[in-house]
Design a binder for these strands. Sequence first.
DNA 1: GTGACTGTTGCAGAACGTGAGACGGGGCGC
DNA 2: GCGCCCCGTCTCACGTTCTGCAACAGTCAC
Lengths: 261, 261
Amino acid sequence: MVTSEQHPAGSQAVDRALSILEILARRGESSVGAVAVELGVHKSTASRLLAALERHGLVVQSEWRGTYQLGFGLIRLAGATTAHSSVSRELQSICDTLAQSLNDTVNVAILDELACINVVQAMGRASVAAVKEYVGRRTPLHATSSGKVLLAYAPPEIREKVLSLPLAAFTDRTIGSPSVLRAALDQVLDQGWATNDEEWERDTSAVAVPVRSLRGDVVAALSVTGPSTRINPPRFADIASRLQAGAATMSAHVEFLASLR
Amino acid sequence: MVTSEQHPAGSQAVDRALSILEILARRGESSVGAVAVELGVHKSTASRLLAALERHGLVVQSEWRGTYQLGFGLIRLAGATTAHSSVSRELQSICDTLAQSLNDTVNVAILDELACINVVQAMGRASVAAVKEYVGRRTPLHATSSGKVLLAYAPPEIREKVLSLPLAAFTDRTIGSPSVLRAALDQVLDQGWATNDEEWERDTSAVAVPVRSLRGDVVAALSVTGPSTRINPPRFADIASRLQAGAATMSAHVEFLASLR
DNA sequence: GTGACTGTTGCAGAACGTGAGACGGGGCGC
DNA sequence: GCGCCCCGTCTCACGTTCTGCAACAGTCAC
């Protein structure tokens, strides 16, 4: 086998095992054979790696000798992440404060491939609507405020990739045209905040601002989501400025924010 | 080094890497040296394993050459778990239905070491209180309804282990005496459901029932949590029977529920 | 400035993971 | 019901890759 990757030093087996988790995250469910093909290894190797992952509860097989899926051990670990990680804790605390003052759901989201993922969430007391947003949720980049922020500041190749793919519609207001999206992203860069005016879900709107590392790179998006009765165009700018204050606190207080990735 | 474990076949490096995740989940933050000691390997080995984990975003180091913590990649994967896993999806759907009908927060929790972990959650429309429960949350076994269910049906060694350790108090109603807890667990086995009457948080109560695999083993707990104004002793039995219906649906519909672990 | 400490990086050896193939169990078609 | 095929797991010998040692490079304390 050709060693196409040039990692600093070798942890081949670990790399492969972790890649399996990503494959399963993408596919949702996969057979040993399929995993082996995608990894480019023999099926016995894939079988053993999966067995190791299963021993730790990170994957489960649906039936005896059935297909594999991600397991609940990951939820356990993710819970520990939010509970123990100092970065998470600080972000959480800032979000809690914002959620209290804005009275709606506040999220921190990061870019992952071609999607936007919530990593921290805080809810305002006024949350009466069913909870559609949650930590770990993947949302499209073109139909959410956080997504637009992340996309606007993302490397050009990501931006162009999204612009070149079909833009799925979720409501009748979802941006469907690449040129309109491009203009919207330019506006985001210009004004420093993005909105989602019922483009992702009916009667629900949101505002988002970038969160920057100390070096100035945009590493995350901070957003507030709520019913359009409270979050609507006349108030967008005001909400954005309050979010920006929170984002600034994050940049200042959260050490090594760049590690979000 | 003595090979004290007898795994079917070897994935030593993968096992160690995954163990690191568990160590970090427990400790929250750890230095390379500490990880190496706990794993019983050389620090260079720990360093390389951590680097591999970091490449995949599962851990991050606080600063340059600083300590390591769990990373947001885990949240990404956990999100994929709930989104794609067929088991999760079915459990989620059943919880959603229950949450709508009971109008409070419904959780599925599993046993993890000496704690209880929420793996699925659905919220009723009436949730006005701040969200204290969340997926991934670890709670003690003696102070929650889910915990009592899991503990009551757990293997004797787990049960005795918990009974032998000090029982932390969270409210003035938390069970603090092993003999009282033992009696409570016996009652759970007897009646088939457990309660938490403001023992974990003031003004908040809960009811939980066991979820069984098709083989009859208790693999999880299904619970509803809400303000004591709605969830209180006179209603416990009725709520429990409605939960039991949901648990039965889970056993019947969710294939290979045993894989929860 | 010096010394102790901690994390990362060459290096050689060997342990461990890998791949080929065999085994065994199910599913499906005939 | 029988036999074929497919798929996941197990065994085994080989050699790739991981490991531990030791040196290196920063950092903190004094």
